[in-house]
């Protein structure tokens, strides 16, 4: 094999959970280092190479003018740019503040907002071209490995876009909506997590964002029928992917 492909991992507005998920690949981490040169990762390395990368995994959304500038720089130095996790895809939890006026959001935290330079939170795709996305809050380790392997094999990664319901059924779980009357986001949420929450009796919160072609209005009516009020339903759709075109309508636009 030629020189190992160079990987960079960046963080913008997010919680670093996706980076931690990468670190959690403990048992195969050394195998990954055999195949890739992780040349930039501030969280784990002292010496970082900023000359350019084959693959950049970008965690976090964009929420300040400086971040807009930075993500554009990264794009220029990157061959294959990955939106790493929900924040980088569509803003995720930080984007909940987009639903309140910027001034109100800033005043809740800062006494003097005149020195605060912040924008609404969006995914990196708002500003630069994105080559692939890794869904999830955080992205699942298996999907990270799948993406990296596919990059080496030069094929399309198998990242399925079907709903959580599929994985839930694979695990022989009773449906939380029909059996427990819970407001589960599974039927509109992309799989990839292995249906962790429903398998433990907790409704899906929607942390992998929208599936392909979700029927959000139907699910919202089902929640209403189960007795949930409109505010609660709105919050459910806002939580992880309120900015996504698929969820935006039910999230309150």
């Amino acid at each position: 094999m030629n020189e190992k492909p160079k990987i960079a991992i960046f963080k913008f507005t997010g919680c670093a959970g996706c980076q931690l998920e990468f670190l959690h690949l403990e048992e195969i981490f050394l195998d990954i280092l055999e195949l890739f040169d992780i040349s930039y990762w501030v969280m784990v390395k002292r010496d970082n190479d900023e000359t350019g990368w084959d693959i950049s995994l970008v965690e976090g959304g964009i929420s300040t003018p400086e971040e807009i500038e930075e993500i554009k720089q990264i794009r220029m130095k990157t061959k294959f740019l990955v939106a790493f996790g929900d924040c980088a895809i569509g803003g995720c939890i930080p984007s909940i503040r987009n639903w309140t006026p910027q001034l109100d959001a800033e005043s809740q935290v800062y006494r003097d907002t005149s020195v605060i330079q912040s924008t609404k939170v969006f995914g990196i795709g708002e500003y630069v071209k994105v080559d692939a996305i890794l869904k999830g809050c955080p992205a699942h380790r298996d999907t990270i490995v799948e993406l990296l392997k596919s990059a080496l094999l030069e094929i399309r990664p198998r990242l399925r876009q079907h709903p959580v319901c599929v994985e839930c059924k694979f695990r022989d779980n009773a449906c939380l909506i029909t059996s427990k009357k819970m407001a589960c986001m599974g039927p509109v949420t992309s799989a990839g997590c292995g249906a962790i929450c429903p398998s433990l009796g907790r409704e899906c919160e929607g942390c992998f964002g929208p599936m392909s072609n979700p029927n959000t209005s139907a699910l919202a009516s089902i929640f209403k029928d189960l007795g949930f009020n409109e505010k609660d339903i709105k919050r459910k759709f806002r939580k992880y992917a309120g900015m996504s075109p698929e969820f935006r309508k039910e999230a309150g636009h």
């Binding site: 709903p163 319901c165 599929v166 059924k169 029927n215 209005s217 139907a218």
Partner: peptide, 13 residues
């Protein structure tokens, strides 16, 4: 009924 969610549950069970 409500419109179909295309969740695939019917066919998987």
């Amino acid at each position: 009924s409500f419109p179909c969610l295309s969740c695939g549950s019917c066919s998987l069970v």
